[in-house]
Amino acid sequence: MSIPPWLDDLLWTYQNLIHAMGVNGLLALSMYVVLAIGQLSLGQAAFMGLGAYSSALMTLKLKLPFFVVLPASVAAPVLVALLIGVPTLRLSGVYLAIATIGLGEVLRAVYLNVDVFGGALGLNGIPERAETWMIFGILAAGITGLWLVGRSGVGRAMEAMREDPTAAAVMGVNVPRYHLAALVTSAILAGLAGALSAHVSSFIGPNEYGFEPAVTILSFALLGGIGTPIAAVAGAWFLTLLPELMRDLPQVRLTLNGVIIVLAVLFLPRGLLGWRMGRKAA
């Protein structure tokens, strides 16, 4: 396969931006899965951090090849999702939100204070093993998979839960099980995003996975919408590209994300791409 020179140049110039779009797209999907069943988690950045740190350590310390590291990077986020998800299963959604906010702070303290994570300096010299095609391949698979699942009985149950969890339970939907499955899926997607980003940026640090990135990830899905997986990804791309276009206006850039979030919530409650998943009656 040969890439035309002009495309190669373009990819090279905007490599960081393109990688960020792919990784943020995965994070948006991770957020979508939880919001689509009517739950709120603020743990996406924490799950991403777990994927990033565990994969970086597997590469740096265990010298494992990337095709082993990448799938194994979901283990830590999934384990933590289960530890958080199971006790909050039967509680109202607020508890999950609070527990996941706490998670990010606890993990930050762990990264700072446990030697193997490199303390405040983080982990350096991670080889750049994630390729652009891997990031976008996984993103495309994620979008397609979630779309196909959304257009089935599972998707109907998800939408029903989002509208009225009590009525959904009366229809026979195992609501706690869906909550846990969504949280685990979300941890897998965020963990993969973390591993991929760690292996394109060569450095990871304890402050990259705290509360602020968690809110940014939430805003991807709020801006794009949660009616379809592609809407959330579009929101992520919009919020990734916009700061690039505003490079020459750094003061404006800082407040822009906040303004967009407020405007989106007030005037676009269903997001920029607000339509629901089409489920054509067979």
Partner: peptide, 27 residues
């Protein structure tokens, strides 16, 4: 307590939820 945003048919389909057996792979 209907699911207002869903279509009339989709609402009724939720009632059939316990009878759906397809695995994730099949879906």
């Amino acid at each position: 307590r209907i699911f207002g945003a869903m279509t009339v048919l989709e609402n009724v389909l939720t009632g059939l939820h316990p009878r759906l057996r397809s695995s994730l792979g099949a879906v």
